[in-house]
């Protein structure tokens, strides 16, 4: 089956016929590469023509020619730059190996932005607790940037961030800056450390009792390994945060990113089109289902 003719396209409902070819990448240059940890890099790409302002929590599909395509969360806020977009990438397979080997000036494919977003603007007036584990800080970073840019519009703000070891912490320079922001509770913990580390040791969920917020008036943004999110959600619910105000970002086998292929289906939801950010009460029945 080929591409629809102009007449066929005109006959299709608008909802399933995007104005721009949905799976056609733009080719963009790499503007900057930074090694964050032993296996994680942040790359800044030029923003393609016609690329809309993305929202915190959305993702792009990055295409390494001749190798493949992967979904990568956007790690920068549209507020920070209108000319470049950051992605923090962990080297885990063939495509990410290529993406993390890129040098400034090289070209790759990009399509997006896709998916749902963190409810940053919608949370004004509420306390906001951000719980990040490992690389989960990357999709939360633009939300934190936007929350801090409009600090006065929110109640208590807290970031709880957990990583495997001190050497695995992302954005360490920025963490230092955030630490000096008044009225921002920043707690960092690692699972393992030697005596040179003077911070917390323990899983990130153990930090939840240490922060001050009004549970009934709190929005929680949670991103990290799914096992971490399960326990974080449980502890937030125990603190009294309503399920509809806890948001999680899910990861599955995203392929088309536009809800066509069904590879990322979770129960009745497509992670790419309905997510990746969900209110917990939307996906609670499927969150811990084995083999799903």
């Amino acid at each position: 089956m080929g591409e629809p003719t102009a007449q066929e396209a005109a006959d299709l409902p608008a909802a399933i016929m995007p104005a721009v070819a949905p799976v056609l990448p733009s080719f963009v240059r790499v503007l900057r590469v930074r090694k964050d940890t032993h296996d994680t890099w942040t790359i800044w790409l030029e923003r393609p023509d016609g690329y809309p302002d993305h929202r915190a929590g959305q993702f792009n599909m990055l295409y390494a020619p001749g190798v493949g395509e992967v979904p990568i969360s956007i790690a920068s806020s549209a507020r920070e730059s209108r000319t470049r977009i950051a992605h923090t990438i962990r080297r885990v397979g063939a495509v990410t190996r290529r993406l993390t080997s890129l040098r400034r000036g090289e070209t790759i494919g990009l399509r997006g932005p896709y998916g749902s977003a963190w409810p940053v603007a919608e949370s004004q007036g509420a306390d906001v607790v951000v719980v990040a584990g490992g690389l989960g800080l990357a999709p939360l970073r633009p939300a934190i940037v936007e929350l801090l840019a409009r600090r006065k519009r929110y109640g208590a703000l807290a970031l709880l961030y957990g990583a495997r070891t001190p050497a695995d912490l992302l954005y360490t320079a920025e963490l230092g800056k955030w630490r000096s922001v008044l009225d921002f509770q920043l707690l960092v913990t690692v699972d393992r450390a030697d005596r040179s580390w003077h911070g917390h040791i323990g899983v990130v969920t153990t930090l939840i009792p240490a922060v001050t917020f009004d549970p009934q008036n709190t929005v929680a943004l949670v991103c990290g390994p799914e096992i971490m999110m399960r326990f974080a959600v449980r502890d937030l619910l125990d603190r009294g945060v309503p399920a509809r105000r806890i948001y999680v970002s899910l990861e599955r086998n995203l392929q088309c990113a536009v809800g066509f292929c069904g590879h990322c289906q979770l129960g009745p939801k497509f992670i790419c089109a309905d997510g990746p950010v969900f209110a917990f009460d939307e996906i609670a029945p499927y969150f811990s289902v084995r083999e799903l």
């Binding site: 495997r164 323990g202 971490m228 326990f231």
Partner: peptide, 16 residues
């Protein structure tokens, strides 16, 4: 109980 749960999660090395 809380410490045991936390220790079990740590054992999973979930960020690996």
């Amino acid at each position: 109980s809380r410490r045991l749960a936390a220790a079990r999660i740590q054992l999973m090395d979930m960020y690996a």
